[in-house]
C-alpha cells in the first residue's frame, strides 16, 4: 500500500440503535501515520465511529476500509482482529491477570509465542510505558494512570498498525492524566496512526495533525488544530469550543 492511500476510509457510514440514527453519513479518510483527534458533545457519535473502525460494531450502510480490510463485509470483518489496538475509557484490563499477564495473553493465545518470548516482549512493551517494574502487579494494585498505561502496553504488544483511543483519560484523576497523554504523545511521535476521541483540548492542540468535530451524527467541521481551535467556521463548533474551553 502506498503511503498516499488512506489507511482508514469511511464512506457514507450510517448507524442506528433502534429508532435513533446515531451516525448520519460519515465520510472520513485517515492517512498512515496521521494523528486524528475527534471531538464533539456527548452523544454526537464519537465512540460509535471508533467502534465501527475497530470492528466492534458494524455499520448499517456505507463502506469502511481499515488497513485494507473491508469491515462492511461481514465475511471479512474479522480479519481486522489483532491488527488494530483500542484503549478504552474504563481500561478493560483483565482483573485476574497481572500487568504482565494482561500483556502476554494475546501473544500466547493469538500469536502462539512461547512463554519465554512472550514474556520478554511484554516486558519490553511495559518498559516503553514506564511500568516494567510493575509487571507482577494486578490491576487492582495499580493507580488509574498505571492501569491505563498497562492497557496501552497490552494493545501495543500485538503490534497494531492503528491505535484507537476512546476517552482514554476521562476516568482518571486530573493529576494522572499527564502520564497517559505523554505516552500517547510519544506514540504519535514514533509515527503511529492514531484516532483519538478526547476531551483533552490541550492534547488535541499539541498532538493532532487534524481535528474532527462531530455534531449529532455528522462531521460538522474538520481541519488542522490551529485552524479548528482558532478560527472555527461552523457555529456549532464555536459553541462547543466555547463551552469546553471555559471549564
Amino acid at each position: 500500500m502506498s503511503n498516499l492511500e488512506p489507511i482508514i476510509k469511511l464512506a457514507g457510514v450510517t448507524k442506528s440503535f433502534g429508532a435513533v440514527q446515531v451516525l448520519k453519513g460519515i465520510d472520513l479518510h485517515v492517512s498512515e501515520g496521521e494523528v486524528l483527534v475527534v471531538i464533539g458533545a456527548s452523544g454526537s457519535g464519537k465512540s460509535t465511529v471508533l467502534r465501527i473502525m475497530s470492528g466492534l460494531e458494524t455499520a448499517d450502510s456505507g463502506q469502511v476500509w481499515v488497513n485494507s480490510v473491508p469491515l462492511h463485509d461481514p465475511r471479512r470483518a474479522r480479519e481486522i482482529r489483532g491488527h488494530v489496538g483500542m484503549v478504552f475509557q474504563q481500561f478493560n484490563l483483565f482483573p485476574h491477570l497481572t500487568a504482565l499477564g494482561n500483556v502476554t495473553l494475546a501473544l500466547l493465545k493469538v500469536r502462539k509465542l512461547s512463554a519465554e518470548v512472550a514474556k520478554k516482549k511484554a516486558l519490553a512493551v511495559l518498559d516503553r510505558v514506564g511500568l516494567a517494574e510493575k509487571a507482577g502487579n494486578y490491576p487492582s494494585q495499580l493507580s488509574g494512570g498505571q492501569q491505563q498505561r498497562v492497557a496501552i502496553a497490552r494493545a501495543l504488544a500485538v503490534e497494531p498498525t492503528i491505535m484507537f483511543f476512546d476517552e482514554a483519560t476521562s476516568a482518571l484523576d486530573p493529576e494522572l492524566v499527564g502520564e497517559v497523554t505523554s505516552v500517547m504523545r510519544s506514540l504519535a511521535d514514533e509515527g503511529m496512526t492514531m484516532v483519538v476521541v478526547t476531551h483533552e483540548m490541550s492534547f488535541a492542540r499539541k498532538t493532532a495533525d487534524r481535528v474532527v468535530f462531530m455534531d449529532q451524527g455528522i462531521i460538522a467541521e474538520q481541519g488542522p488544530p490551529e485552524q479548528l481551535f482558532v478560527r472555527p467556521q461552523n457555529d456549532r463548533t464555536k459553541q462547543f469550543l466555547q463551552r469546553v474551553l471555559e471549564v
Binding site: 470492528g55 485476574h96 494475546a106 493465545k109 493469538v110 497490552r154
Partner: peptide, 29 residues
C-alpha cells in the same frame, strides 16, 4: 462486563479463547 469481551476481541482472541481465558476465571470468584 462486556468490555472484557470487547478488549479480547480487538486483541484477536476468539470467542472460545475469551470464554476460557478471560471470562471463566473471573466467573469463579
Amino acid at each position: 462486563p462486556p468490555g472484557q469481551w470487547e478488549a479480547s476481541k480487538i486483541l484477536g482472541l476468539s470467542n472460545s479463547q475469551t470464554f476460557v481465558s478471560v471470562v471463566l476465571p473471573q466467573t469463579g470468584k
